[in-house]
Design a protein around this nucleic acid. Structure first.
Ligand SMILES: [Mn+2]
Ligand SMILES: [Mn+2]
Ligand SMILES: [Zn+2]
Ligand SMILES: [Zn+2]
Lengths: 142, 142
DNA sequence: CCCTTAAATGCAACAATGTTGCATTTGCGG
DNA sequence: CCGCAAATGCAACATTGTTGCATTTAAGGG
């Protein structure tokens, strides 16, 4: 009987990152890892009412600093956070964002290869960002 | 003697878009068309001190509604606006955004072709978004 | 030209998002 | 169990963007 491939506990991830394991951080990391898509601060705040607003900002920034989460502004200019390990599932394909309903759709196409950068430039992230109207919203519009 | 390829006046662009030609709009459109890069509201406000803050927001939104400008959140979550005709110069290549200094750099690589979308989906815009650290900021960091 | 009128502007108030300072609490190594 | 740096909670503030409403102005028809 082969050993199961367990995902690490959130506590283990926090310890591996070298930051203190606290109840608020466990709750936030659990929420991020369980989320189907990148979450905004407001969404997390609504989900985790017991956590202070500012603490939540600081926890998210700490996660980003220590490589546990990614942070990117969405089309509306709001930051969205994704757990790095949950995010890996979405690394192999392209996303389409509906400008009407805000929905994110996973396409089957592989992401394009990043081009060569000028000397000295460091690439952190490359995202092929497709925006438009999803089928449902397009139909409703007529 | 061939006829020169004149770019249209900003007033002509406003008229063609079917909106009133006003002094604030002319100033904003001139500024956007002269700008080397997409401009934030704050940058435009500093440049055009005579224009009211709210009016500037409304002018920019009107430009977007009428196809005279594009609007997109930058890596810091701030909206940046570009005149559509000035922007055409930047349609044929990819951009790199420095997460440290906020600078936008034009790369020589052509943009990747958008993938096939699911039935009913409408593509409005496709952008290959590269983020990281520019050479100058990378050097300063060490 | 001058009126008329809808559109655009200016200003005040508000809302959402993100940051800073500081006193208090807590995880964790010793 | 202690001591202390790290993390939290709370208040105040900053920036970015929105809404309501009174006033001004562009543009078209006499
Ligand atoms: Mn996906
Ligand atoms: Mn360019
Ligand atoms: Zn949709
Ligand atoms: Zn830079």
């Amino acid at each position: 009987m082969g050993k199961e491939t367990l995902s690490p506990t959130s506590a283990a991830l926090l310890r591996a990152a070298g930051i203190k394991v606290t109840q608020p951080r466990l709750a936030v990391l659990d929420a991020l890892r369980a989320a189907a898509r990148p979450m905004s601060h407001a969404e997390l705040e609504a989900l985790l009412v017991e956590i202070d607003r500012v603490t939540l900002y600081r926890i998210l920034d700490a996660f980003v600093r220590h490589g546990l989460a990614s942070k990117a502004a969405d089309a509306r200019g709001v930051f969205r956070f994704a757990a790095r390990d949950a995010q890996r599932e979405h690394g192999g394909h392209v996303h389409f964002r509906c400008e009407t309903c805000g929905g994110v759709f996973c396409l089957s196409a592989p992401p394009p290869a990043p081009p060569r950068l000028p000397r000295g430039f460091l690439l952190a992230e490359a995202e092929f960002d497709l925006r438009g109207t999803c089928a449902q919203c397009a139909k409703a519009r007529r």
